[in-house]
């Protein structure tokens, strides 16, 4: 088992993981804001979810601890198993949510003929009366044309 020699090294390793997870969260958030295609939105959600998963597992890490699996009569310390069990279920829920979103996107593409979010928002606004269109369309900033 690899051991970390100094506290500085552990700190650097921690910032590496934090940077990775925070970077994924930021990229995913940007995709959620700026996406113009519905599948890009789902890809952004995927990135955001991956970042959160990495962060939560990184919180449970301990230096000089083994993976939480007993081998023989080992008595050493093990890393925290609770975040790992949480993330294990979160990954599977994530793929379920992704599949549901994809099914909705396929259905919308079949009905509307487009997955462009601005276009879909415009059509949604057109089906309502102008008085209620502003309330039912909080993301009306997307309706601007480039």
């Amino acid at each position: 088992m690899e051991t970390l020699s100094t506290a500085t090294e552990l700190e650097w390793l921690g910032w590496t993981f934090y940077a990775g997870s925070a970077g994924l969260v930021l990229l995913g958030c940007y995709a959620l804001f700026a996406a113009r295609h519905a599948l890009r939105l789902l890809l952004g959600l995927f990135l955001l979810e991956s970042g959160v998963n990495l962060f939560l597992v990184a919180v449970g890490f301990r230096p000089d601890a083994a993976a939480p699996i007993l081998v023989g009569e080992q008595a050493g310390s093990m890393v925290d198993p609770l975040p790992q069990a949480l993330i294990l279920t979160a990954i599977v829920i994530g793929v379920g949510v992704l599949a549901l979103g994809l099914a909705l996107a396929v259905r919308v593409a079949k009905e509307e003929g487009t997955l462009d979010l601005a276009e879909l928002g415009r059509r949604l606004a057109a089906t309502h009366t102008p008085a209620t269109a502003e309330e039912t369309l909080p993301q009306s900033g997307r309706t601007e044309t480039p």
Binding site: L10, E11, L13, G14, W15, F17, Y18, A22, A58, V59, G60, F61, R62, P63, P68, S77, M78, V79, D80, P81, L82, P83
Partner: peptide
């Protein structure tokens, strides 16, 4: 960044996991 600065990597204050281990 501000939040993660105070979260020291490697010794998070979680005890339930250790008890379960």
């Amino acid at each position: 960044t501000a939040l993660l600065r105070d979260l020291h990597f490697g010794n998070a204050p979680m005890q339930v996991g250790q008890a379960i281990n």
